[in-house]
Write a protein that binds this DNA or RNA. Structure first.
Lengths: 236, 236
DNA sequence: AAAATACATATTGCATACATTTTGTAAATC
DNA sequence: GATTTACAAAATGTATGCAATATGTATTTT
């Protein structure tokens, strides 16, 4: 295995994507060129091309003369997210049901198997990445070049947000995650049946479930504990 | 005027955007690095960064080891366009009506003045660019970071398509263009009044007008002339 | 002592030489 | 004569040294 430069670039691209999606690199974190060069084995020119590609995809933001940072997530971006997500997700699943190729249906079945496995035995990042992969495939199925850019940006931040609730700590959260998995199965069935209307309805259901999870994280139930104590200890 | 490298990069970026939007550079056309270096005064490193930025915005496509070309437009992309445009345009104008800042309303009024002037005295490219600018501002007003990437891609191809009908050759086309301008005025009024519902309706109307123009170009009326002759001579 | 300024250091941006890949052309083979 | 193969030319990708910009620190000034 020669390990060409092209491979190293693809590797680094993938590694940074995963790290950002799973919050291994937090929103706003600085990316040090010298550091990344060192542990990727790339020189600065191709490294900077990788950063520019990530910027184009929405993973990072480039500030002239001040390096790259991981894209921010604020309360305003969360509001934008809530407005855009249901519309785009609905359109993507509609088109996926209309256009999915047989090979893609096989691919999404495999992705769903991975997701299910991650729910049973995987880590939080495994679950987030498997779920992300599932939805990426629906985007490929829809195949609309005008919708994909926005769809991908939504998926990035959806993954980062969902990292918080793919670490289920209450029975209710476990139940939610299980329901999400069942919805995935229904989505696959609707796509395989070319059932556009059902796919759109499932998109709405799936979004509502996710929205509830997000809301319960952003606006958790009021604490009925004395101040200075958290209602539940989180590991580390 | 020092004319720094940063200025030259911005200049080239703008020049290439305009050329692509106005079909000065045709879809599929190759971009020669050496040539661009020569007439932009940039060396290859910053030039390639410009190309990567254009790729991220959807103006060009990069093929490894084979250079950049202007993004293609085919019948499949046109189909995607017809599906995505009404949805995205509607959402953008809705949000624009909700969120527009006073300074932005002044900006779009100025843009509309430019557009009107271009209709009277300007060239086809002037009209296309002025129209493009008008709609760019609606995107800035909406300000939803998840919708903007798709919106911008739509605007790119909308500009390229509209170059064909901003060179009006029949009285009916002149009438259409005039109606588009009136719709712009109504859009501005709805936004200034924060009238979300009207803005959404106008988005639909404006799209329908544009769609009809596109359709009459893609599927023109049958020729009742002998073969070998075009029904109407176009200048150059 | 607080603020401002000058300087040193670190980081980013650019230019150019070199390596690799592609592509066009001509010779050779069948 | 058509196809294949070898080679040459051109274009793309990468590495690195140098320039420009930003940042932190120490010194000076009030």
């Amino acid at each position: 295995m020669p390990d060409t430069t092209k491979d190293r670039k693809a590797h680094l691209l993938d590694r940074l994507k995963r790290a950002i999606l799973t919050q291994g690199m937090r929103p706003g974190a600085d990316l040090d060129e010298a550091q990344l060069c060192a542990d990727s084995g790339l020189s600065r020119t191709p490294l900077r091309e990788v950063l520019r590609e990530l910027a184009g995809l929405g993973y990072v933001e480039l500030r002239t003369n001040r390096g790259a940072r991981v894209s921010e997530m604020s309360h305003t971006t969360l509001r934008d997210f809530f407005l855009a997500a249901p519309m785009i997700y609905g359109a993507i699943l509609r088109l996926a049901a209309l256009n999915a190729a047989p090979a893609q249906i096989e691919a999404i079945k495999a992705a769903q198997e991975d997701f299910r496995a991650a729910l049973h035995r995987g880590s939080t990042t495994d679950r987030t990445l498997a779920n992300n992969r599932f939805h990426e495939i629906t985007g490929e199925m829809a195949g609309n070049i005008y919708l994909l850019p926005s769809f991908h940006r939504l998926l990035i931040d959806h993954a980062r947000i969902s990292m918080t609730f793919y670490r289920p700590v209450t029975p209710a959260m476990v139940e939610n995650v299980s329901e999400a998995s069942q919805q995935h199965d229904a989505i696959i069935a609707a796509i395989a049946a070319r059932d556009e209307a059902t796919a759109a309805q499932l998109a709405e259901d799936h979004w509502n479930l996710s929205r509830n999870q997000i809301e319960s994280f952003v606006m958790p139930a009021g604490m009925d504990q004395p101040l200075g104590t958290l209602p539940r200890s989180t590991s580390a």
